[in-house]
């Protein structure tokens, strides 16, 4: 009896276990679902809404990939990961792609054996202080108490910054963004530091956002992007070029509104648009997908600019400006290699 109970547990486990094959792309197609690793909840980037539907800037990328590969933007299993669990989840194959705000660094790429397939948000670490503290530069923060979320590159940047400027500080490590806000608002720390986008999002939720200022120093480069496992280049290509398709779409003026008509027209004077949308050439075949894969990806939430505007842009409560995340033609850093 005892043994059978145990066995039943393992039998149940067996049902959940899926057979593995060589390529993630084939796995995803066979499974019919994309396992997508996200945050446990960061409003604007990835958070469940009141109906339990995941929404946000990072989530939109997942939906685009699912649409490109499976032709269904909802065929996604969202796996929320913490700073601690995200890399194991990816390395062990629990998730196919990690879109959580993860900074592209040398050691993550080389030592942890992950492949960053591009950058979907250029961020940097900033500081937020209450206005009445009268601080105008991060270099004036000698002796301050700094609230910081653990498990991110933020704490390493912070240590480096204060060491480089030879000033002292007191770190207060906290687990979640919500607790960080609470500590900061109660005055348990003088400064709250995290990625500038996160600070803006956090400040937007305050009762009195004007009582807090973001300091001018951005102390780090935080290129955030989706990542996959090392060594599975076919799958890496799918994720990389889905992201590039969204970026190129904005550059070339493909929007969710004119997408259908562009596909219909297949105007010979715009060859690159045609190649992206699959009405010319065999790009889809090369990547192991249908010819209209990119069109499907763009159809979900529009191009990069539309996704940005809808989730974190200036019209939203998060209210982020494009800044570095503008197209290269507008002075930003977004630059997709050509679809050729």
């Amino acid at each position: 009896m005892k043994k059978t109970l145990l066995l039943s547990a393992f039998a149940a486990a067996g049902m959940a276990a899926g057979a593995a094959s060589a390529g993630t792309l084939d796995d995803v197609k066979a499974r019919g679902k994309l396992n997508c690793g996200t945050n446990t909840g960061l409003v604007g980037f990835a958070a469940p809404d009141a109906n339990g539907e995941w929404q946000g800037f990072d989530v939109a990328l997942c939906r685009a990939i699912a649409a490109a590969v499976l032709d269904d933007p909802n065929a996604i299993e969202f796996v929320s990961t913490t700073g601690k669990t995200r890399f194991t989840a990816l390395a062990s194959g629990e998730i196919d792609v990690l879109v959580r705000n993860t900074t592209w660094t040398f050691s993550r790429d080389a030592d942890l054996k992950f492949e960053f397939t591009g950058v979907n948000y250029y961020d940097g670490q900033g500081f937020m202080v209450p206005k009445d503290l009268g601080v105008s530069s991060a270099k004036e923060l000698d002796g301050a108490t700094v609230c910081i979320q653990t498990g991110t590159t933020t704490e390493l940047n912070l240590a480096d910054f204060f060491r480089a400027n030879n000033i002292s500080y007191e770190p207060v490590p906290i687990e979640t963004n919500a607790e960080g806000q609470q500590q900061y608002l109660a005055g348990a720390c003088d400064v709250y530091t995290t990625d500038a986008s996160g600070l803006a999002a956090t400040r937007a939720t305050f009762e009195d956002p004007d009582a807090h200022v973001l300091l001018p120093e951005i102390i780090s480069k935080e290129p955030l992007g989706p990542l996959v496992r090392h060594g599975d280049n076919e799958w890496g290509d799918v994720v990389r070029w889905t992201l590039n398709a969204l970026i190129s779409a904005e550059e070339l003026g493909i929007t969710s509104a004119n997408l259908a008509s562009l596909v219909e027209a297949a105007d010979p004077s715009t060859p690159e648009i045609n190649r992206i949308l699959g009405t010319e050439g065999t790009l889809g075949e090369m990547i192991g997908l249908d010819p209209d894969w990119a069109a499907r990806a763009i159809a979900v939430g529009g191009n990069y600019g539309e996704i940005f505007a809808k989730n974190i842009g200036e019209e939203t409560p998060i209210g982020l400006a494009r800044g570095l995340n503008a197209q290269w033609t507008d002075g930003g850093l977004l630059y997709s290699p050509p679809f050729r």
């Binding site: 601690k84 653990t150 991110t152 490590p173 906290i174």
Partner: peptide, 18 residues
């Protein structure tokens, strides 16, 4: 956020080194 051994070795060190 008390930095005991779970917070250092099992927390930040684990996160940073993977």
């Amino acid at each position: 956020g008390y930095m005991d051994v779970t917070g250092t070795l099992g927390g930040i060190t684990l996160n940073q080194t993977g």
